[in-house]
Simulated assay, not measured.
Amino acid sequence: MKMDQMIEIVSSKLKLIRIEHGYTQDKMASTLGISKKTLLQIEKQRMQANWTTVAAVAAIFRDSEILKTALGGDPVELVEILAHEGIERPKEQTLGGKVWWKDMKCENGFRLQQNLISKHYRILDDDNHRWYSSFDIGEAYERLNELVKS
């Protein structure tokens, strides 16, 4: 997934996210720091949200089932990966990838998974703590090999 794909997905789901949380258009626009006119344009799919608005939606509505389903998991994780071109921060606990994840390789207490929707990769330990996330499969395998050897 690339930034423009995430922008497109979040823009297309913004009205449903607003309704899911019971927000009026005025409250949603105010919460996101955009004008009501801009919100209406996005909701009517006449324009797309900008990256800042998408990041705000991901953070503020992180628990949105619509957003999680559309993106295949934690929206904030995707924003971080896209903004930083990968995440290398050990010990954030996950739910273990029971819904949107496919195990690619399991070795020595670590497993490499791929998200079925966004297609990004992550490495979890046996306790489901995330050690690494990236869209680059080569880097993900390299990091897995480093973790397995340590």
Rank of each mutant, 00 (worst) to 15 (best):
Q48G: 01
Q48W: 05
A56E: 14
L40A: 08
L39C: 01
K44M: 05
T52I: 12
L40P: 00
E77V: 10
T52K: 14
A70G: 12
T38Q: 06
G73W: 04
F61P: 06
R62C: 02
K44F: 03
P75G: 11
G73Q: 07
A49M: 12
L67M: 11
S35M: 06
L39H: 06
P75K: 09
W51I: 14
L39W: 01
A59S: 15
E65M: 04
A56R: 15
T38L: 06
A55D: 07
W51D: 03
K37T: 15
Q45C: 03
T53V: 15
T53H: 04
I34T: 11
M47G: 04
L67W: 05
I66K: 08
R46A: 03
L39M: 09
R46M: 09
L71R: 13
A49Y: 06
R62Q: 11
L39F: 10
M47I: 04
I42N: 05
D63S: 14
R46N: 02
Q45T: 13
S64Q: 02
L67Y: 10
T38I: 04
G73V: 08
A49N: 03
S64K: 07
L67G: 03
I42L: 03
G72E: 02
F61N: 00
A58F: 01
T38V: 12
D63W: 02
E43Y: 13
I34C: 06
S35D: 05
T53S: 07
P75S: 13
D74M: 00
Q45F: 08
T69N: 15
Q48Y: 06
L71F: 09
G73P: 04
W51Y: 13
K36C: 04
T69G: 06
R46Y: 11
Q45V: 01
L67V: 04
L71W: 09
Q48D: 10
D74G: 01
V57C: 10
G73Y: 01
K44P: 00
S64F: 11
S35K: 13
W51T: 15
G33F: 09
A58R: 06
D74Q: 08
